[in-house]
Amino acid sequence: MLGYTITQWLFGILSFLAIMFALMVVFTRNPVNSVLYLVLTFFCIAGHYLVLNAQFLAVVHIVVYAGAIMVLFLFVIMLMNLNEDTEPQKTLISKIIAGCIGGVLLVVLVGSLKGAEQLQLHQAGASQIGLVKNLGKVLFGEFLFPFEIASVLLLAAMVGAIMLGKKEIK
């Protein structure tokens, strides 16, 4: 197939789809469509994780982002009854300025990273660190304390969200 391996085909297709869906997130007027395109972008990124043999992260990514976070976004958008008619639009001039800043940022970053060393990724078969067994050993060995702190962080976020979401605190 034109001298490319299956991995390279997968990388190309997933990258193209991810960039297209990400652009649609920004340029779609309807917020609900924006959320759905973002879910598709996250699926493409999960595909990239699979190509990189990070299977645990691919599954966690789908569960946490596509499953939990985006459903939360969708709920809030539907609660607020947002649609194309209520969508506030920036003036044309500020959109053009935003595009110019993005283009300049792209040129600067690509220019500065172009000279980076050309390194090939390890063979997929050789890299087994993304599997649950190996990642679990690192997570519950070296990173046990940060892992416990993360649970406190999530508890604090949960309490904070409930406090903020309550009607009026007398």
Binding site: S15, L52, N53, S94, G102, A116, L119, Q120, L121
Partner: peptide, 25 residues
């Protein structure tokens, strides 16, 4: 797996900048 790391750097840069433009626009 024979994908140069530079391709991943470019892809991440592009996605990051799309996000940044979205924040501004």
């Amino acid at each position: 797996n024979t994908i140069p790391i530079n391709y991943y750097i470019m892809l991440s840069t592009i996605l990051f900048i799309i996000g940044a433009v979205g924040v501004m626009a």
